[in-house]
């Protein structure tokens, strides 16, 4: 079996894996990082979004071996080492931007990437930018508010 050399949440990882292993399966089953979720089988729902070299990626669309040499970040690594939540995580809680929580890790990772590409997005840009992430619970409004707040645009 080939060996994957990568970094996951800041730690160097070297692991033998089957070449057909998807990145999401490697993270969940291989690394025990179950915060990244699987909600569909057609790369539509976005529950599996992680960052690969700082870019939001649906980890079900990528073979783990394609992450050779990459830096992968998952939801588990977003908060500070002392447990302080990332501003986007804080905003999601403050604005009730999650209900069942299943889409939330992917939604938060997508939102963080959206803000790093566009630090002050308009509500329309947020809605467009999160089009690849399906939430069945919230109706999205509070997610938009959370992202606006995390970008410092709501005041208060």
């Amino acid at each position: 079996m080939p060996v994957l050399n990568t970094r996951v949440n800041g730690k160097t990882v070297q692991k033998e894996i089957k070449p057909t292993t998807l990145l999401v399966a490697f993270l969940r089953d291989g690394m025990g990082l179950t915060g990244t979720h699987v909600g569909c089988d057609t790369s539509q729902c976005g529950a599996c979004v992680v960052h690969v070299d700082g870019v939001a990626v649906k980890s079900c669309t990528m073979l783990a071996l394609q992450a050779e040499g990459a830096d992968i970040q998952t939801i588990e690594d977003l908060a500070g080492d002392d447990g302080t939540l990332h501003p986007v995580q804080q905003a999601f809680q403050k604005h009730h931007a999650l209900q069942c929580g299943f889409c939330t890790p992917g939604m938060i990772m997508a939102s963080v990437a959206l803000l790093s590409a566009n630090p002050r997005p308009s509500p329309a840009q947020i809605r467009h930018g999160l089009e690849g992430n399906i939430c069945r619970c919230t109706g999205y409004q509070n997610i938009v508010n959370a992202v606006l707040d995390a970008s410092g645009q709501l005041g208060g």
């Binding site: 179950t34 939801i75 977003l78 999601f92 009730h96 929580g101 939330t104």
Partner: peptide
């Protein structure tokens, strides 16, 4: 009141059946 369960959900520590 903000939700207490959110702490685990926003940090990827929810425990769903497949986890």
């Amino acid at each position: 009141v903000p939700r207490v369960e959110d702490q685990r959900f926003v940090t990827g520590r929810g425990r769903y059946i497949d986890d």
